[in-house]
Design a protein around this nucleic acid. Structure first.
Length: 323
DNA sequence: ACGCCTACCTGCTTGC
DNA sequence: TGCAAGCAGGTAGGCG
């Protein structure tokens, strides 16, 4: 059951480190949700921050429409937690930067950062907590999920939303492949990379290219694959693609095994922190020694994101116009 | 296709 | 000590 550690307005550790739920963190949360609230009925929902509720459900109707729903099971797609309801509808919870789902026992003190509170029929509360209010919750009709954001598919999605029809699977139509699924082979990655000239770092963060990778795991995967973040995707040879493929899957799998990268106040649904933070090789390790070669880790900005890499292990891409 | 910009947000760190 | 600026970053949406 829940192990509430509330209130928790002060992070256990100092630093600007925030939780950043990426694929492993969201997978961890989805599994916790499944374990803790599958079969539970939502008795009542209270929306404390209306903008958390996203299209197509108007915030004022959301609470009324979710009340009485029973949660059949929970799963993950990309960085979104899916609540599959008994009646076929699906509630999506996109945690974005600081979102968290937490189950607490009856009588647990209020949380000032709880944006949406679901009171369960058994008295427990499922709280959507989000300090920075970036996260979004949607409620989608049976058989229907239309795209919930994946970069550049946005235009076509808007058109479809305008018609007011939503179909399962379509919510994520703008997303790229799930990197941990069987279908995501090295060959498939090679095909996708070969069609793009963008920088590797940019592409790894592009949800329409690969779903679920964020800033932490992008840096970690590139370090592990010994590939420079500025390398153009279509310049990789076969061996490099295989390394990247293996690295992406490894860092994500290890992240899941460690219940997520626990920066600052990241916690799972049961209040237990993840354990992956200490295992990161480059992310936020600027000027500290590379675990492989001892060289100082560098930090650069790529696509507006901080990017960490080892200048010796991850060689600078050779420019064609170089002397 | 691609890159760059702004907006959304708050809390923590840094610099004066 | 106090205060303001800077930073963190996933996604939407705009522009070139």
């Amino acid at each position: 059951m829940a192990n509430p550690r509330w209130p928790r307005t002060k992070p256990a550790r100092s630093g600007t480190l925030s939780l950043m739920p990426e694929l492993p963190e969201v997978e961890t949360i989805a599994r916790d949700v499944q374990r803790l609230v599958a079969g539970a009925t939502i008795f009542q929902a209270t929306v404390h921050w209306p903008r958390t509720i996203r299209h197509p459900q108007p915030p004022e109707r959301f609470a009324a429409e979710i009340a009485g729903a029973t949660i059949r099971r929970a799963s993950r797609r990309a960085k979104t937690v899916l609540f599959h309801l008994e009646d076929g509808r699906v509630m999506t919870v996109a945690l974005r930067m600081t979102g968290a789902l937490i189950v607490v026992a009856p009588g647990t003190p209020d949380d000032p950062y709880a944006r949406v509170v679901f009171r369960l029929a058994d008295g427990r509360e499922l709280r959507y907590r989000d300090v920075r209010k970036f996260g979004r919750i949607g409620l989608w009709p049976g058989g229907g999920l239309r795209s919930v954001g994946a970069g550049r598919g946005a235009r076509s999605r808007r058109v479809a939303e305008g018609r007011g029809r939503y179909r399962i699977g379509e919510v994520f139509s703008g997303h790229g492949p799930e990197p941990l699924q069987r279908g995501f082979s090295a060959r498939r990655l090679a095909e996708r990379l070969g069609r793009r000239s963008a920088k590797l770092k940019t592409l790894l963060l592009d949800q329409s290219f690969i779903a679920g990778v964020g800033n932490i795991y992008a840096d970690e995967a590139l370090w592990r694959a010994r590939l420079h973040p500025l390398r153009a995707a279509d310049t990789l040879d076969e061996a490099e693609v295989r390394r990247l493929h293996r690295a992406v899957r490894q860092v994500l799998r290890e992240g899941i095994a460690n219940r997520g990268a626990s920066f600052s106040d990241y916690v799972g649904v049961d209040g237990e922190p993840g354990a992956n933070a200490e295992r990161l090789a480059v992310y936020r390790r600027t000027d500290r020694p590379c675990f492989r070669c001892g060289r100082r880790i560098e930090r650069i900005v790529v696509g507006q994101r901080s990017t960490h890499f080892c200048p010796r292990c991850q060689r600078e891409p050779v420019r064609s116009d170089a002397p």
